[in-house]
Amino acid sequence: MGKIHDRIDGRLRAFIEAQPVYFVATAPEQGGHVNVSPKGYADTFAVLGDTTVAYLDLDGSGVETVSHLRQNGRITIMFCAFSGPPNIVRLYGTGRVVLPADPDFPELIRNFGPHPGVRTIIVVECDRIADSCGYSVPFMSFDQDRTLLDEWTGRKDVQRRRAYRAKHNRESIDGIPGLAPEETDPVTHHS
């Protein structure tokens, strides 16, 4: 059934990179709401090393992951096989938020496909890498990525994106600080 891995080997990496969707889970330190976010665009996720992964944090209606990571760093990323042999891979670890102004941002952004509306990059140091059977995960076919997020972001000028981020990305639904005012400025970083 399940197995614990000490690193992301070639087989796990191939599985992760083949998935068109993944799920990110975080939670506040105490109480509050556990957050699970589905992520699309396979080119927004990268395996950086044996135990290090990263993904693009694109414009969105909330800032739960950023808030929770800044508070406690805990994160789990899950991949499910919706086609082919059944499999689930979970990457447990400690995440950090990399802002466009951070020195390692320019190098990290090169790992991803082109998307407007890049807020941050989330880097995760995995301390537990596990797979399990996924026997009950249904078969589903992947038709194509929805392009709506990129289109929505692309239609907004800097002022409208700044106002949106100021309204929706300053704190989590539980009032935990998210992006600071100086961090909501939508610099023109295309991945």
Rank of each mutant, 00 (worst) to 15 (best):
Arg7Thr: 11
Asp9Ser: 03
Arg13Glu: 09
Ile16Asn: 02
Gln19Glu: 06
Val21Arg: 01
Val21Trp: 01
Val21Gly: 00
Phe23Gly: 07
Gln30Asn: 12
Gln30Met: 06
Gly31Arg: 03
His33Phe: 14
Val34Asn: 00
Pro38Thr: 10
Gly40Leu: 00
Val47Glu: 03
Ala54Val: 08
Leu58Tyr: 08
Asp59Cys: 13
Ser61Trp: 04
Ser67Lys: 01
His68Tyr: 01
Asn72Gly: 04
Asn72Glu: 03
Met78Cys: 15
Phe79Met: 07
Phe82Thr: 07
Gly84Leu: 05
Gly84Tyr: 07
Gly84Asp: 03
Pro86Arg: 11
Ile88His: 03
Arg90Glu: 08
Arg90Trp: 08
Gly93Met: 00
Thr94Ala: 07
Arg96Val: 13
Pro100Glu: 04
Phe105Tyr: 15
Ile109Asn: 10
Arg110Lys: 15
Asn111Asp: 13
Asn111Trp: 13
Pro114Met: 12
Gly117Cys: 06
Val118His: 04
Thr120Phe: 04
Ile121Glu: 06
Asp127Cys: 08
Arg128Gly: 08
Pro138Gly: 12
Pro138Ile: 14
Pro138Lys: 09
Pro138Asp: 09
Phe139Val: 13
Asp145His: 13
Arg146Pro: 04
Thr147Glu: 15
Leu149Ala: 06
Glu151Ile: 03
Glu151Met: 04
Gly154Val: 06
Gly154Ile: 09
Lys156Gly: 10
Asp157Tyr: 02
Asp157Met: 03
Asp157Gln: 08
Arg160Thr: 12
Arg160Trp: 00
Arg161Glu: 05
Arg162Cys: 11
Ala163Asn: 06
Ala166Pro: 11
Ser172Trp: 05
Ile176Gly: 05
Pro177Ala: 07
Glu182His: 13
Glu183Cys: 06
Thr188Trp: 11
His189Asn: 14
His189Thr: 14
Ser191Cys: 08
